[in-house]
Design a protein around this nucleic acid. Sequence first.
DNA 1: CCTTAGACCTGGAGGC
DNA 2: TGCCTCCAGGTCTAAG
Length: 279
Amino acid sequence: MPEAPEVQNVIDTLQQELQDVGIVSVSITHPKLSENIPYEQMEEKLAGQHLRAFSRHGKYLILQTDDYDWICHLRMEGKFLLEDQLPENEKIRKHIHAVFTLDDGRLLCYRDTRKFGRMQLYDKAEHPLDLPCFQQAGRDVLDPQADGAYLYEKIHRRSIAIKSALLDQHVIAGIGNIYADEILFAAKIDPRSSCSHLSLQDCQTIMNECCSIMERAIAGKGTTIRSFSFGHGNQGSFQNQLMVHTRKGQPCRECGEEIIMVRVGQRSTYLCPNCQKLR
DNA sequence: CCTTAGACCTGGAGGC
DNA sequence: TGCCTCCAGGTCTAAG
């Protein structure tokens, strides 16, 4: 569940379910899950805390408790499950690496097949964005100040491909591999174009399309391509609106040309070679 | 400083 | 069935 719209869906769901709920105890079984302090300390500190505020910056979840800022990053496959008891299914239970017992009897389970996800715990900051993990972060993709002028200033001296720049969280936080492809299709720009060849106008087009795609994706509760959730909801519907991503070999929905897949910065990249022009 | 392989992990899909 | 290779919504690092 990784890009901004999916993370927004997760944080909205957690808020609905867990506002002011207390954590009774914590059991972490994958030590590396806790990134900034020993996992035993994370267990001890979160026990007794109540979940007070829920927000997001880029792909990071920000959970504020009574005394701490609890930061989670789901990376590729991390997900939270709310259960009345530990899942019976061994395939599901095998990849649960942390269990938070709640004061209403439910269990908040963190499941992550590839173990890429990470959590951090900090003493409460004045503002969460003051935390060390956000010092290098770009503006959030939904921040109105993340506009064309902002993007242009961040990238116009760089030689990397525009697709790679959109994936760079120091530039804009929250865009991932699916939406980068979709945004550049909507902007009619070849993802391999060098940032240094893009005009201010190009950057404004990109950010305008970015806004409208993010809005639609969040309205559709994100994109679910490969479904690893076994029954528990949080599935999005935006995959039905994808114009290029995952559509290799299929006709472009606008011009009929065959969608191709190329590699850009080690990531699979889908584009319409007719609609999207190289700068 | 910038850019690009490689690493971190596991499992599903497809070829032979 | 087994074995192999490639692929996956992400990001940090080491090296050029």
